[in-house]
Design a binder for these strands. Structure first.
Length: 423
DNA sequence: TCTGGGGTCCTAGGACCC
DNA sequence: TCTGGGGTCCTAGGACCC
């Protein structure tokens, strides 16, 4: 009888930092930090930066002294570049398994079943080598009988150099030894709240959690915790999803580059988010049935706080920018309260479905003309750059737009920014 | 001065029904 | 004194992830 199917997780090391380094080799060996949108906080750190004690999510303004002292190279996040590099990594991985699940921008689950005579550790190394050669991105590989164990193995491969960047936990005895030394808070699916609860039971290692009775887990947590325990025991509860499921919601939200206090500016900002949301819907061939607009003050400040949010149905379901802007503006008008210092706003879309599956109504006959108009706008913006054509409601000045002061070039997707090699 | 953005899943509780 | 039992559907909020 065949054993359990090995699942591999390949994860790019410090992905955003590695992307910047591919095109700027001088960043090799020096501390590099990538900031979130609005240059707000740390979201990717080179090993040198991690060694300085800088944590994920640390606010940038608090890091300024460290940045200067250690000459940390700082970048605004460049999602166009990272997205394109991710696509290239995926392409390189395709040849190593017929079944892969692109789990996030820098992680892929792969079914390693079906080649039982292959040394999985060596196979993992070969895969890493190929990705490195094709894209310049360094990776680590974790292998185990379940997704949770593959994730865990990947963390071990990253942290513990003795594994040589590939950690295979298919062997029960190796697994037990590793689980005993693995902190429960580092397990996939165990966050802060659960860690605290488990600590109350004296559970601090992965091995202890594995040995907790699923019944007890169910009573103190949820079915999610119960599944994690089964997965730690090597019994798969989470399937490899090689076809991406239909997405259920979509969000376009941004912090402002500065505080917003006027309704006129809020209407502009929310109209802009609605406009981007429309573009995203059309890109995916989707329509939405529900729209939420929200805005709020900064929870980190002492000012009077206000969180505003309104939901509205879209009927008929739509991806039409003017329709979304109208709905979003109504929400803002209804929720607006003067006298607060707002720092963030957004538009959320729910009840998504494919445009062709949307229920018809008696009154949505004229959509063809609108669809044509949107298609024309999208193609102009694709050809000449985002924002070439936009609705007046989204504003002209956009003084509230976010900051990005350390942006690297779009090396791989914008012709004018392709790197030039001089002889 | 200054703290991201975009997702998923699960549960409890209310409304409603027979 | 003393007010059923069992469904469904929906939503808000929590927890977690990258």
């Amino acid at each position: 009888m065949a054993g359990p199917t090995p699942i591999a997780l390949i994860d790019c090391n410090n992905f955003y930092v590695s992307c910047e380094r591919v095109f700027n080799p001088r960043l090799e060996g020096v501390p590099v930090l990538v900031l979130s949108n609005n240059d707000g906080c740390a979201i990717a750190r080179s090993n040198e930066v991690k060694a300085l004690g800088i944590k994920m999510g640390d606010p940038a303004f608090k890091l300024r002294p460290l940045i200067e002292k250690h000459g940390i190279r700082v970048f605004s996040s460049n999602y166009v570049l990272y997205g394109d590099m991710s696509r290239r990594v995926q392409e390189a991985l395709g040849q190593f398994s017929p079944e892969t699940e692109c789990y996030s921008i820098d992680e892929t689950f792969m079914d390693f079943g079906g080649f039982p005579h292959v040394d999985l550790w060596a196979y993992g190394q070969e895969m890493r080598g190929t990705v490195q050669k094709w894209t310049g991105i360094p990776t680590c590989v974790g292998i185990g009988p379940t997704k949770t164990l593959a994730k865990l193995a990947n963390v071990v491969a990253k942290k513990n150099p003795t594994f040589g960047a590939v950690c295979d936990l298919m062997e029960e005895s190796v697994r037990t030894a590793v689980l005993r030394a693995f902190e429960v808070s580092d397990i996939w699916g165990i966050g802060r709240a659960t860690t605290t609860k488990l600590a109350g039971l004296g559970i601090t290692t992965a091995a202890q959690l594995r040995d907790l009775s699923p019944k007890q887990a169910r009573s103190m947590g949820t079915v999610v915790l119960e599944r994690t325990i089964m997965e730690l025991r090597g019994l798969p509860c989470l399937a490899l999803e090689d076809v991406a499921p239909q997405r259920k919601g979509m969000a376009c939200t941004r912090s402002f580059g500065r505080v917003v206090t006027s309704k006129a500016e809020m209407l502009e900002a929310v109209a802009s988010h609605a406009s981007r949301a429309g573009e995203k819907l059309r890109q995916h061939g989707l329509v939405a049935g529900k729209l939420t607009a929200f805005f709020h003050t900064s929870p980190h400040r002492d000012y009077p706080q206000h969180h505003a949010s309104r939901v509205t149905r879209l009927f008929p379901m739509s991806s039409d920018t003017p329709a979304l802007i109208t709905a979003a503006s109504r929400c803002v008008e209804a929720a607006w309260r003067q006298g607060f210092r707002y720092v963030k706003a957004g538009v959320l879309l729910d009840d998504l479905c494919r445009a062709e599956d949307a229920p018809r109504t008696l009154f949505d006959a004229p959509t063809e003309r609108e669809a044509k108009c949107m298609a024309t706008m999208d193609s102009l913006n694709a050809r000449f750059g985002r924002g070439t054509v936009s609705l007046a409601a989204t504003g002209i000045e956009k003084g509230w737009k976010l900051r990005a002061e350390h942006h690297s070039p779009c090396y791989t997707t914008r012709l004018a920014e392709v790197p030039v090699v001089r002889a």
